[in-house]
């Protein structure tokens, strides 16, 4: 097991309470071959369980496509984004946020 930890910075916004979004940073133990979703799971289970990301029905294997977000500014599936160092996670569209990384579906 490696001792390395990475900093995961996450967009946080609960429109029912917060006046504006903010970023929160978490320290996550690094594991070779981990995805952004694995980091989020660690944070939810161990550090901050108020965090929201689409996983109540996610496949985590790149099939359902519902975990689309931005990883270091680039859009992609959180479950298939390999994390190797400090990382910033944001929703795919800030104007459609329901909570944190979860957004309403686009019209298309």
């Amino acid at each position: 097991m490696t001792e390395k930890t990475i900093k995961v910075k996450i967009f946080r916004y609960d429109p029912s309470v917060d006046t504006e979004p903010l970023f929160k940073e978490y320290s996550v133990p690094f594991e070779q071959g981990m995805s952004a979703m694995n980091a989020l799971d660690y944070i939810y289970q161990n550090l901050d369980s108020t965090i929201a990301y689409y996983d109540h029905a996610g496949c985590c294997l790149g099939i359902c496509g519902r975990c689309t977000g931005k990883v270091n500014g680039k859009s992609g599936l959180l479950c298939q984004a390999l994390v190797e160092d400090d990382v910033v996670l944001e929703p795919i569209n800030m104007s459609r946020v329901i909570k944190d990384l979860v957004v309403t579906r686009s019209e298309s």
Binding site: P15, S16, V17, S49, A52, Y54, D55, H56, K99, V102
Partner: peptide, 13 residues
């Protein structure tokens, strides 16, 4: 449950 917000509350689910 740490947050009372109803929308997409993972802990509540």
């Amino acid at each position: 449950i740490s947050s009372n917000s109803r929308a997409y509350n993972k802990e509540w689910i």
